[in-house]
Amino acid sequence: MRIRLCLAALSLAGGATVATVTAPAANAATCSDIDVVAARGTFEPGTLGAIVGDPVFSALQKKLTGRNLTSYKVNYPADLSLTSAAQGNSDLVNHVNSQAAACPGQRFVLVGYSQGANVVDNSIGISSAGAVVGSPIVASIPAALEPRVAAVLLFGNPIRALGKSVTGTYQSRTIDFCATGDPVCENGGGDVLAHLGYTADADAAATFAAGRI
């Protein structure tokens, strides 16, 4: 419980110190070249997430000039309830399925920070059960749609504290940032402020994703 409360405090503190970059949300029927699907961290403010989602989307817009980008904020509580990550998991998969059916040429970049990384992990078939604010898998992106996921960008991923990581189909398309000492993703980590510093990795994450589109 102490770790869960710490995570909440970290996210709330981040909202007080990080400026929000406005990113347009995608409608279900909006077709674009790339749909950036972002799951924010626990209690994280911002359109897609002030610490990660918004700066990553902004960086992608700059690197993918000539491409049409939309964004989607995963609809889930992002709180400390036991079903929060599972709700995000279900919403993310439903969104990808809906968009893929409506927009045959659209590809996806999945972004997850903190609890949002649990949401993305579950959605690509890597269970976050047992991790801080994690949950069992309730839905997975269908195998037929896997090639349309261009990149997976994870930050402060709680499953890493369990010794887990993204393996299998998505491994080569995934970059997973864990700051030294971040107690959410590093077992035994003691630098609570490290969990708030992932805005600094937005450009590197966008460069990684752009190289796979």
Rank of each mutant, 00 (worst) to 15 (best):
R212L: 15
A86P: 03
T65E: 08
S84G: 08
Q87K: 07
C31I: 06
E44Q: 11
T42W: 10
D182L: 08
Q115I: 07
S71D: 10
L92A: 11
N75L: 13
D91Q: 01
S127E: 11
E44W: 02
P183S: 11
V184W: 02
V184Q: 07
Y72I: 00
A102H: 00
I126M: 12
S172Y: 13
V166T: 04
S123H: 06
D121S: 14
L7W: 01
Y170C: 10
V74R: 02
G125M: 09
T180C: 05
R107L: 14
T30G: 06
A210N: 03
A8F: 06
L193K: 03
D33C: 10
P136T: 13
A50Y: 08
A102T: 02
D35E: 15
A38G: 03
P183K: 04
D54H: 06
F208I: 07
H195M: 01
R2A: 14
T47I: 12
D191S: 12
S90W: 13
Q99L: 13
T169C: 02
A101W: 09
N75H: 14
D54A: 04
L110C: 03
A117C: 07
L82P: 06
Y198R: 00
A150M: 03
D191H: 05
A23P: 04
T20R: 13
N97A: 11
G116N: 03
N27F: 11
V133G: 00
S114G: 04
I213D: 11
S90Y: 14
G188Q: 01
G53W: 04
N89I: 00
L162N: 01
T42I: 15
A13G: 15
A86I: 02
S90L: 14
A144Q: 06
R212H: 15
N89Q: 01
F43N: 00
T180Q: 14
Q171D: 11
R107P: 07
K62F: 08
L193D: 13
I213T: 02
R173N: 04
A38R: 06
T83V: 13
G112R: 03
T167G: 09
F208L: 08
L5Q: 14
N187F: 15
N122P: 02
